[in-house]
Design a protein around this nucleic acid. Sequence first.
DNA 1: AGCCAGGACTGAG
DNA 2: CTCAGTCATGGC
Length: 213
Amino acid sequence: MICKLFTTLLEHYGPQHWWPCQSGARWEIIAGAILTQNTAWTNVEKAIGNLLAADVMSQQLVLETPDAELQELIRPAGFFKQKCAYLKAMAQFIIEHESEFEKSDDVWALRKQLLAVKGVGRETADSILLYAFNKPIFVIDAYTRRVAERHLDLDGSVHYDVLQKTFMDALPSDVTIYNEYHALIVALCKESCHKSGCGELCKSLYEVSKNTN
DNA sequence: AGCCAGGACTGAG
DNA sequence: CTCAGTCATGGC
């Protein structure tokens, strides 16, 4: 079912090419992953726009910027005091470990390191690994849990690592597939929020949920 | 007017 | 380990 849902969504929406990124810089992806914590992406875009306009879009520049100034720039993304501290902690970490992250293939060891950074939980760590460093790890978020319940007949409330393992066991270990799958899940959720009748896609999704593996 | 969004930290039990 | 409380803005 997990594989079938992927091919169905890919057929319907086509490749998504995530992560949404204005500058193409790795740090923008990392910063976005932190700024979007429990926050609508439209608000994150404003904060990122501010950072770009103020020329503060890099690890070094973030560390050089005083807290009060940085907080003002990221204010639209909410939780701005926390996220200011989180961004600085992450900036320091990336400066120290970026080359190591580029080289290493031990995804789980890298993940463990990221989780030790203040402000980085499982979803943020996995988003950074997958979208900023192209490591094969599957991202679980609120959308994934909804889709798992709604279309895959899974318990969406299970522990993060359990649901992640369910997806990763069912799929080949492939960066492109993990990347696209998560993006397609988001595409599905965003669209069905605004549209009720969905025609062909609904029929295809129904076919997916009839399969029992 | 409220409710919620692509979470994570902290303290309590 | 599970659970509520906290952090904050903008859109609907």
